[in-house]
Amino acid sequence: MDFLSNNIYYIGAFGLIFIGLFIILVKHNLIKVIIGISILETGVNLFLIAVGYISKGTAPIFSRPGLNAKNMVDPVPQALVLTAIVIGVAVLALALSLAIRLYKHYGTLDLRKIKEQRW
């Protein structure tokens, strides 16, 4: 039980990462694959935040005098996650626009039926 409460964020983050990877590997519907990519990215972001967390920490903002700098969480992962989220949004938007185009061409989003290109 102690192990669970100590590592709950890691478990959650990697749970999301595995769910995302599993969806990408197994599903055939393009929209589901895109959802999988999105879940994977969320998991990675949660993992990065968890790396910088301190037990009972506060946000690293000196909004009023007298805040204890010792309790503040690491600001770097938060900055990294901001970047990672924006990149995730960019990939998601592009993927959805390509999915729209693909649907107009083939009339389906099933990746098994879309086989113009072959090895």
Partner: peptide, 19 residues
């Protein structure tokens, strides 16, 4: 990387000197 450990060196520097 145990969970909830205190900040690492770069992060500590930013909090101390950033202002």
């Amino acid at each position: 990387i145990p969970f909830g450990i205190p900040k690492t060196k770069v992060g500590e520097y930013y909090i101390d000197k950033g202002r």
